[in-house]
Amino acid sequence: MALGSKLNPTLRAFIERQPMFFVASAAAEGRVNLSPKGADTLRIVDDTHLSWLNLSGSGNETAGHVAQLNRITLMFCAFEGDALILRLYGTARVIHPHDADWTARLAAFPDLSGSRQIFDVAIEAVQTSCGTGVPRMTLTADRAMEELVPYWDGLDDDQIAAYWRRKNAETIDGFDTGLIRD
């Protein structure tokens, strides 16, 4: 196991090859959340900084946790090729569609319906481990692009806002996610 404070070219290339990653977050109280993320939603800004575009879904735990306590962990696993697990530990801030820098930050990503937040992550520690316990698997389809994005494509702005109010305004522990501004 190796621990460092920033990415290097090898780790950057590894991240860019991964079709999915995992995000873990927790507030001081309540449940820990672990979510899989996919599609073309991650950008490496530099060796100590990245951002990812968060698409709408049935929950919004990470945004609520970051609003309470901004620590975050991202994990990447090699499901093909040489075994490797990479964890990035850091802090995050959330950028919402109603924030002043939303449009400028969104320009780094493809136009994906249902985009609800951008997480700006400052990397504080980088850890690698062997990953030999992770199975080899082959990607056969990208559900985000086949199912999730087309679902949001079919909704207008009012329908998306209503969904966000109903499903994404609070975490399961009752923390405000900052998505809805009245």
Rank of each mutant, 00 (worst) to 15 (best):
A83H: 12
V32W: 10
A104D: 09
T91W: 04
W102N: 03
I72E: 00
P110S: 09
L84G: 05
A108I: 07
H98M: 06
R31M: 13
R136V: 09
S25A: 08
L148M: 14
K37L: 11
R87A: 01
D157I: 04
K167N: 13
A144I: 05
L11V: 05
E146L: 12
A39H: 10
D47V: 02
D158V: 05
L53K: 03
Q18M: 10
L3V: 12
D157A: 15
R17H: 10
E146Y: 07
F21E: 12
D182E: 04
A162G: 14
Q117V: 05
T177L: 08
G154M: 04
V126D: 00
T103W: 05
A161L: 13
L7V: 04
P150D: 09
N60H: 06
L53Y: 02
I160P: 03
Q68C: 14
Y89E: 01
L53V: 04
G114L: 09
Y163H: 11
I72L: 01
S58E: 12
P97I: 08
K37Q: 14
L42D: 01
G90N: 00
Y89A: 00
I123W: 00
R181Y: 02
S5C: 11
I123Y: 00
L148I: 12
I44G: 04
V66I: 15
A83W: 07
A13H: 05
I72F: 00
G131K: 07
H98E: 03
Q68S: 15
R165A: 13
Q18R: 10
A100T: 13
I95W: 02
T103E: 15
S115C: 12
M137K: 15
N60I: 02
I15W: 01
S115F: 07
R43D: 07
P36A: 06
I180Q: 01
P150N: 09
R87I: 00
A26F: 04
W52D: 02
R43G: 07
V126W: 00
L112V: 04
G64R: 01
D120G: 09
L84M: 09
D40N: 15
H49C: 04
H49S: 06
T177H: 05
P19Y: 10
T132G: 11
V23P: 08
S115D: 11
G133M: 11
L148S: 14
S56K: 00
K167E: 15
R31C: 10
W102G: 02
F109K: 10
G64S: 03
L53I: 06
T62V: 15
P19L: 11
S35I: 08
S35V: 10
M145T: 07
